[in-house]
Computed example of a mutant assay.
Amino acid sequence: MPKVQVVNMQGSPVEEIELNELIFGIEPNNSVMHSAVVAQLANARVGTQSALTRSEVRGGGRKPWRQKGTGRARAGTIRSPLWRGGGIVFAPKPRDYSKKLPKKVKRLALCSALSSKVIDNSLIVVDQISFEKPKTKEMVKMLEALKVSKKAMVVLEGCDENNVMTSARNIEGVIISRADTLNVVDLLKYDYVVFTKAAVMKTEEVLSNA
């Protein structure tokens, strides 16, 4: 079982805990993580592009001139794609880009991403994170004590730690996430993942039931 040191907000060791081997101690599967990233980015796309075909363009219901005798090319509507202001040939229409992954594949991808953070020593566990009032300076001070110098994701147990969330919102390269809303893209995007001890337990609970 992988073990990790728990530190306080000043960066001093407090205790050592064992992580669930099936969640934090597996061999990362790069192929599955890639599939999860592709699916998540595809699901974020909004297929709202749209253009009008000749049947949808307003006007053009009458034949502009008679078929023969004018010397001009025959025309049935002024909304032909050949005309200015006409419809678009094979016009793009709203579409669904979403991709679905099996639940077990999603779980494996998350566990692979978490395990890769443990292997890279970029997963930090803090006994608890709490501020008396929202203070960006206090959050910066804590991250410096934890020696987090790059992009970081702070994972909390729930959404009731408003002071922590507000303290981190103005720090560039730092985001706050909940243990039950973890995703592969964010885990791979950020260099460090800072868990509270409660968030680790919540993550193990969520992924054990997945």
Results as ranks from 00 to 15, higher is better:
43 N>P: 11
30 N>K: 13
4 V>H: 10
88 I>D: 01
133 K>Y: 13
199 A>E: 11
41 L>R: 15
82 L>H: 14
14 V>W: 02
208 S>N: 14
135 K>H: 11
58 R>W: 03
122 S>M: 01
199 A>C: 06
70 T>V: 09
115 S>F: 05
154 V>A: 01
36 A>G: 03
173 G>N: 05
54 R>E: 09
106 K>D: 01
152 A>I: 02
154 V>N: 04
25 G>H: 08
179 A>W: 08
179 A>T: 07
95 R>A: 05
188 L>I: 08
109 A>Y: 08
200 V>L: 12
8 N>G: 09
121 N>I: 01
131 F>N: 02
161 E>Q: 14
152 A>P: 02
199 A>L: 10
143 L>N: 05
87 G>V: 08
165 M>S: 10
123 L>E: 05
142 M>E: 10
62 R>N: 08
163 N>A: 07
118 V>D: 09
187 L>T: 05
44 A>R: 15
186 D>Q: 10
193 V>C: 13
125 V>Y: 06
109 A>T: 03
190 Y>Q: 01
12 S>K: 15
119 I>A: 10
86 G>D: 08
97 Y>H: 08
92 P>L: 03
52 L>E: 14
34 H>G: 01
105 V>A: 09
25 G>S: 07
85 G>R: 02
46 V>G: 04
45 R>G: 11
57 V>T: 00
111 C>E: 10
185 V>D: 11
90 F>S: 07
138 E>D: 15
8 N>Y: 07
74 R>Y: 10
191 D>C: 06
63 K>N: 01
2 P>W: 10
4 V>I: 15
173 G>E: 08
202 K>C: 10
43 N>S: 08
65 W>Y: 15
147 K>Y: 03
